[in-house]
Write a protein that binds this DNA or RNA. Structure first.
Lengths: 189, 189, 189, 189
DNA sequence: CATGAATGAGATTTCATTCAT
DNA sequence: CATGAATGAAATCTCATTCAT
């Protein structure tokens, strides 16, 4: 793994552990096993790592959707597949979604944020488009907006499960179940 | 206004203006019109103000719901009233929700987080209960879970509007419209 | 107990517990059960309490000698009685002797220090004088200097026992025994 | 001289000049010619320098004894040589002994204190052993205890001379003279 | 490229002292 | 006399950043 990659992974670990505010560059370089000065060869500040982390997360999310969602399956099944993808990514990055979001908002890089999420929104939009075409999803809201609502709802729900230490498998199943009904109803014709 | 209250209000102002990361305690005390040392009589650090801010926000949110939502109105109308309340609070606190959230997750105060939101969840739960009783809302998901899903969805959607500098009234109306349909469908029988 | 007395006693307790450097006036007033401002009605600073503490200690020391030392007893017995007095006071004030000393040296009040110890030195000098007259103590060193050497040696030895947490009765007895022989030899004709 | 050494030496200078209480870390770093932050790379607080200072003092004391004391000289001469060594070190470190002591007792480093003095005690113990073997020193007290009594007495006596501003050479000679007789008698067979 | 000791600006934090009650 | 909340000067301490190696 090259140094830049090490820094990103270390940042994810430390941000998750300590939160953005309390994370110092010294923590990151220690976790990454590199020298203090090396950090600056790749990033100008800790917040500048945020977009890279977000990119990584979105990339994995899109991949997870590609792997799981079958476009010819019934809508309910597709919704469940989307949920599985969201929970998988959320488990991996835990509350970094929100932290990333907060970090970005802090750093005057909001436009980047839209860019980074764009590919995820488009991916979900495609799925929605398809289901609108075949009459599974209602057509009184435009597909991009529906995509953002869908992604946001899944993200937020998954976080509610993984944020807390007393994570329990049963709770995860229940939450997925509730989310599935909620989303399916919200989208269907 | 007592000193503690002054600090909380000043923190809200400064956090909104500068973000958590850039905010210095010196900014807060200046805004609050108190001495540097006085801050520490009430809070041990700037992050420790977060729960107090969140409490204030939730309090206002609950009040906004009380003022707006009519329990005997049709479900769609109630949903719209809930949305109005959420947008009103979000407008007031802007991205402080997410900042607060980030701040709380940082600290070891996650249980506080649940506590603080509890009164809001309960308020919405009551509304849902009522609508489940009269058959307006589906009963295949328990009301507390539905309340959390509803609150989360509204919060997230409102933030998507107010987070960005290029806020536009038209966009707000469109987003509310989309959210209304989304939530109404998600909840209704 | 009047407030001044409370402050002195509280200072002794806190200085013993925390050392001079780490002791804050807030610690003292808390221990004394009085208000912050009240301290300043009696003392201008924490170091200004030192002479009062030293006085108290010296006073008790002199009393202890008066009670114990029998001028008509054999020299060895008188030495043992002096040692008992020194250990008694040292037990009570523990390492405050040295701390007082350090505190005084810090506070440009060295002349006071001599004054305060003077009555103790005089008391011991009298005893030495008497024993020089009757030929028990050697006369090739003047009695005041012998008194200071005697007091200093006892003080230091007692502290070596009480300073450490792992205080043991056996160690106290052994140290007294060794000190007795040491002092007796040092003084006798 | 490396930075750590610079800090220790500067601390000695400033502590002697100002006392522990009044010494600020800014004084030390200025005297040491280093940056404020550099101090914290080596010591967590000014009190944490104390053990290092004590070590240095003990080291010099042991060296002074090695240079001066002749094991084959008569006991009285060896006592005088020990006294010379003690006064030399005390002159150099002045009231730092007592300040160091106060500083150490403050911190929770009392065991360190014993450790640091151990090498000095051992050095003097060797001398006493030798003189017990050849019958010059009485054998009814064990040599380590005698060593501690001897060291303590010398230290305390030397301090009494150098602590006061109105230091006078004549007084130093007189005190040495009195101490010589005192110690010689206390130890001899 | 990589290092990590050193820096010092600027933040946090303390705490003696005041003073209105 | 007594109080203790408030003060703010002055201390401690942090940590992003640099740069000689």
């Amino acid at each position: 793994m090259d140094k830049r990659e090490k820094i990103i992974q270390a940042s994810i670990d430390v941000f998750k552990e300590q939160g953005i505010e309390k994370t110092k560059i010294s923590n990151i370089v220690k976790q990454a096993g590199i020298a203090q000065g090396t950090f600056y060869l790749y990033f100008p500040s800790k917040l500048a790592v945020m977009p890279a982390i977000a990119e990584k997360m979105i990339e994995q999310w899109v991949e997870a959707i590609d792997e799981r969602v079958k476009l010819n399956a019934p809508l309910l099944e597709q919704v469940n597949q989307l949920i599985e993808a969201a929970f998988q990514v959320s488990k991996e990055f835990r509350d970094l979604t929100v932290l990333t979001y907060a970090g970005l908002s802090t750093s005057d890089q909001l436009d980047q944020w839209e860019n980074i999420y764009a590919s995820l929104y488009q991916k979900v939009e495609e799925i929605i488009d398809q289901n609108q075409s075949n009459g599974s999803i209602r057509q009184n809201t435009d597909s991009y907006r529906l995509a953002k609502l869908t992604v946001g709802t899944m993200e937020m729900t998954a976080e509610q499960v993984f944020l807390y230490d007393e994570y329990q498998e049963q709770e995860e199943r229940d939450q997925k179940e509730a989310l599935s009904k909620f989303l399916y109803q919200a989208l269907k014709k």
